[in-house]
Design a protein around this nucleic acid. Structure first.
Lengths: 242, 242
DNA sequence: CGGCGCCTTGAAAAGAATCAAGTCTCGTGG
DNA sequence: CCACGAGACTTGATTCTTTTCAAGGCGCCG
């Protein structure tokens, strides 16, 4: 029993642009099925050319690149509503791997119908470009954090981002949001060592700003967190849902 | 006297995808003129919504984000053939500023005709998405370098990238390519201090790998440079020209 | 000639990585 | 039912990369 795009629960959210009836119909045709990934599964591999494109419907995952020496750079986190596989759809090959952190439900689209989308659904084509541009924007902000901030600000930055984004997804209950990643994932995302990440998280905890334990992030002082992240004004941008 | 897209010198290069006659005609109509920017000029400002989109025809520039405390993160370098302003075209607002480093000649396109491109030129729309995806890919690689590599590898990485890209643009003469940036620009791009950048450049020079002086980068040992950059196999990807 | 921008170099200070244990939880198998 | 091991989180001590501070040099332009 797969979810029909017209009844997609994500469509209700303010975070996402409205979708016309016509577009929803098209998406339902474009969608070839659903796929459930178990925790730890690799959905797409760097260098691989997948014939499948996905939109995350439920669960969380991450994008990462691996270096020869085993180091890993997390280049993004995948939350519900995120489109996955655009690079392979456009350039024929993924430049990073994608892994499910929790159990994930993915909407599956067929790459062969990708071209039809550009020919017959200019609005959806525009949205796809929007998705790519948004991704680029996020990477630019992340690069700025990794390149210019010190440890405390980096950690605050990424926690703040999660907090706001997950709140926009309606997952905030009493200033608590689910955050099922490991400390190593955050360390690899922000270019810090695991040990330093751990000590920095402890600092944020001791200062009564935010506590992250048991896959749950509790933000006691959202204002202080944003301040520590040097990103007071940053809004989570509205985006199209593919 | 502006350059006609059909006779655009960049089109000759292997680096760029072929363009059909029909597409070249469309681009000529899409193009509203040319614009010459003097060194140091700000072409687009972060947060601004420009009604103009550009393709760099000649010269070099850079994209950067500024933090409240004055720090700066360079999020990309603009070389001939690069498209500028996609974010403002798609999302209505630039997320980074763009500055001309040298004198630059820019092809100017009108944002108001942007939508027509998506409606009537699906192939060009696809190319635009390709540009966005390529940009995302480059940022991902840069993030990996900034997040995971040490100083020497970071500098080697960026020099190697310039060397290969400028070579693909036909600007390589005897292993020398023009590189008109300041050390501070490279430092801000790779998240290093100016002092450390300078000392690291000295190291590469002493080791006989590469010398950068007088706006010219000379690579004595391309193999060693790529090795130091941990990016032996990375190719400069072919891309569409907008 | 003087000042400004950029590059260079040395010394000191600090932030982050690495090394090294040790704890806690949870699932597995004896 | 409990011992055991794996995986993740903590914490202290040490090492080292990188930053910051400070100063001088060089070329260019008014």
């Amino acid at each position: 029993m797969t979810t029909n795009c017209e009844n997609c629960p994500l469509r209700q959210l303010d975070l996402f642009d409205d979708m016309s009836q016509d577009e929803a119909n098209f998406m339902t045709r474009f969608k070839t099925g659903e796929f459930v990934a178990q925790p730890g599964t690799e959905l797409l591999a760097e260098g691989a050319s997948s014939s499948q494109l996905y939109t995350a419907l439920e669960g969380m995952g991450l994008r990462y690149k691996t270096l020869e020496d085993g180091r890993r750079q997390v280049v993004g986190f995948i939350l519900p509503g995120d489109f996955v596989g655009l690079q392979s759809g456009i350039m024929g090959e993924m430049q990073h791997s994608v892994e499910a952190t929790t159990r994930m439900t993915m909407c599956v689209f067929n790459r062969s119908e990708f071209w039809e989308l550009f020919r017959n659904q200019p609005r959806r084509a525009f949205d796809l470009t929007h998705v790519a541009a948004t991704e680029e924007m996020v990477l630019g902000e992340m690069l700025t954090a990794v390149g210019q901030m010190d440890g405390l600000a980096k950690i605050a930055w990424v926690l703040n981002r999660f907090f706001r984004r997950l709140t926009a997804l309606g997952l905030n209950e009493n200033d608590q949001v689910p955050l099922p990643y490991r400390q190593q994932d955050i360390a690899d995302a922000m270019g810090l060592s695991l040990v330093h990440t751990n000590k920095t998280l402890a600092k944020l905890r001791e200062q009564g700003i935010a506590t992250w334990a048991d896959d749950t992030l509790t933000v006691h002082r959202p204002d202080k967190l944003a301040e520590a992240a040097h990103s007071v004004g940053v809004e989570i941008v509205k985006r199209p849902l593919i």
